[in-house]
Simulated assay, not measured.
Amino acid sequence: MAVAIVTGASRGLGRALALALAERGWDVVVGGRSGGALAELAAGQPRIRVVVGDVTDAWHRTALLTTAWDLGGLDLVVNNAGVLGGEGLATTAELSLDELRRAFEVNVIAPLGLAQEALPMLRAAGGALINISSDAAVEAYPTWGGYGSTKAALDLWSAVLAHEEESVRVWWVDPGEMRTAMYAAADAAAAAEAPLPEQEAVPGLLALLDARPPSGRYLAAALAVRGDDTAAGTVTDTVGADAAERGVAR
Rank of each mutant, 00 (worst) to 15 (best):
A2H: 13
V3D: 06
V3S: 08
V3L: 04
I5E: 00
V6P: 04
T7G: 06
T7I: 09
G8A: 06
G8F: 07
G8M: 06
S10E: 15
S10C: 10
G12Q: 01
R15P: 02
L17M: 14
A20L: 05
R24Q: 13
D27A: 14
V29S: 04
V29L: 02
V29H: 07
V29W: 05
V30A: 10
G32Y: 10
G35I: 13
G35M: 13
L38A: 11
A42I: 13
A43Q: 15
Q45R: 15
R47G: 10
R49M: 01
V52A: 08
D54C: 08
T56I: 13
H60L: 01
T62P: 00
L64W: 08
T67W: 00
T67I: 01
T67D: 11
A68G: 07
W69K: 01
D70S: 13
L71I: 00
G72K: 05
V77F: 04
N80R: 08
N80F: 00
L84I: 09
G86M: 07
E87N: 12
E87M: 07
G88S: 14
A90M: 07
T91I: 00
T92G: 14
T92H: 05
T92L: 15
S96G: 14
L97G: 07
R102L: 15
V106Q: 08
V106N: 09
L112P: 03
G113K: 06
A115R: 00
A115G: 02
M121Q: 12
M121C: 01
M121G: 03
L122P: 10
R123I: 02
A124N: 03
L129Q: 01
I130A: 04
S134T: 04
A137R: 11
A137W: 15
V138R: 13
E139M: 15
A140Y: 08
A140P: 02
Y141V: 12
P142S: 09
W144Y: 15
G145C: 03
G145F: 01
G145M: 02
G145H: 02
G146W: 05
G146I: 04
Y147L: 06
S149W: 11
S149H: 04
S149L: 11
T150F: 08
D155G: 00
S158N: 05
A159T: 09
V170T: 11
W171M: 09
W171Q: 05
G176M: 07
G176I: 09
M178K: 02
R179I: 05
A181R: 11
A184N: 12
A186W: 15
A188D: 14
A190R: 14
A191G: 05
E193R: 15
P195I: 12
L196W: 04
L196G: 04
P197T: 09
E198H: 14
E200W: 03
A201W: 09
P203Q: 05
L208H: 10
L208E: 10
D210S: 13
S215R: 03
L219N: 13
A220F: 07
A221Y: 02
A221D: 11
A222V: 01
V225E: 15
G227Q: 04
T230N: 13
A231K: 05
V235R: 13
T236E: 06
D237P: 00
G240T: 09
A241F: 11
A241M: 06
D242G: 14
R246F: 08
